[in-house]
Write a protein that binds this DNA or RNA. Sequence first.
DNA 1: GAGGCTAATGACAGTCACTGACAATTGACA
DNA 2: TGTCAATTGTCAGTGACTGTCATTAGCCTC
Lengths: 210, 210
Amino acid sequence: MNLRERKKQRTRDALLRAALELFATRGYEETTVDDIAAAVDVSQRTFFRYFAGKEETAFYVTRLAETQVVEAVRARPPGEAPLEALRRALLESWDTINETIEEIVPVDLHMRVYRVIESTPALLAAHLRRATELEEELARIIAEREGLDVDADPRPRIVVALFGGVIRVTERLWSAGDDLSLEGMRQLTATYLDQVGPALAGNWRTGQSP
Amino acid sequence: MNLRERKKQRTRDALLRAALELFATRGYEETTVDDIAAAVDVSQRTFFRYFAGKEETAFYVTRLAETQVVEAVRARPPGEAPLEALRRALLESWDTINETIEEIVPVDLHMRVYRVIESTPALLAAHLRRATELEEELARIIAEREGLDVDADPRPRIVVALFGGVIRVTERLWSAGDDLSLEGMRQLTATYLDQVGPALAGNWRTGQSP
DNA sequence: GAGGCTAATGACAGTCACTGACAATTGACA
DNA sequence: TGTCAATTGTCAGTGACTGTCATTAGCCTC
């Protein structure tokens, strides 16, 4: 790696860290791109040469985590039922995700940024759009596993939509609660995924759920 | 209603119609607020006194339709299983929605705007965020029907997430296809909701689906 | 029905995200 | 070392929005 390349990398990292730190402390809307650029002592124009927009910095870490989940799903044995494969892939890639995050920023910072995403309307909207793109990708993977045509058979997209829906519910709940650990989120996710079966049973009134 | 009120109503309607017409023909990003204001011959500032932002005009009609669905769910007999209540409420409010839309703009225009929403990243993101707010409301209604606490029992949010997920999948498919009628969309929605059961069965390989 | 009150509007200036263009700088490599 | 190309800064401009203030126009009372 060149001096030139190393310098670029350092600038990119510095911009990312400065942005996330500012978002976590001051809030997303309250942070201007000029603030971020000033914190790293580069021009605003330079910021936009590294990131397509303010938003991109907020999702940088999330993007890495998502990639891992997709890979984990791809690696699942073909015998598993679709929903089970998704469930296991997600829960088992948790530790790897943890490490990946730590390479970029402290996990704690990422968790705080995550809450900012959930509580900032503009970011939440972007997050949901990104999530549907991910779901499309997962649906294609599932369809391939099962030897189906995604555009002809509704089932792959439906399972993935259900899966994605449950994930989003847990994300919301987690970000609204006060346990901001990765492990707490994992627990919540596992619990909710276990509730899918019961939730779809016709009658809920026979016996309570945990 | 006095002259003043009538004038305001006319301005609001004119702005809304001009905006939707422009979005449908020229595209959302290609339409500036100045364009909309100029089409109605008012100042840009006046536009912002009637609508919180450009986005709001794009979702004005959708908002009305959503309100109807919520009411329809509220009106469902308490005996029905949750998912069934949601399904029936949606499919049965279709005609009412059609009428409501027609009171504001031609249904055809609304359908074209709808496609613009689905194909414009910024609008799609906003749409998804609005959808999750709707889901939260529905989850509360379902929980109340079943005499449950939304925050203690995961099931209401899970069914609604599943339901919402299926709706979004059909919205996407419909907007990507070439049948832009309301009836076509209704059909697609019904078909997909019918596939929920089969999609959750463990093994998909025994027998094909329609 | 004239005049005062208040709500609606327009005009203007300013902020913030983002983009294009051009010139200055700086590392790479012969 | 000198040339070439990549990186950066500066400047100007657009588009969504917001605050402010003066002007206009329905409304209501005397």
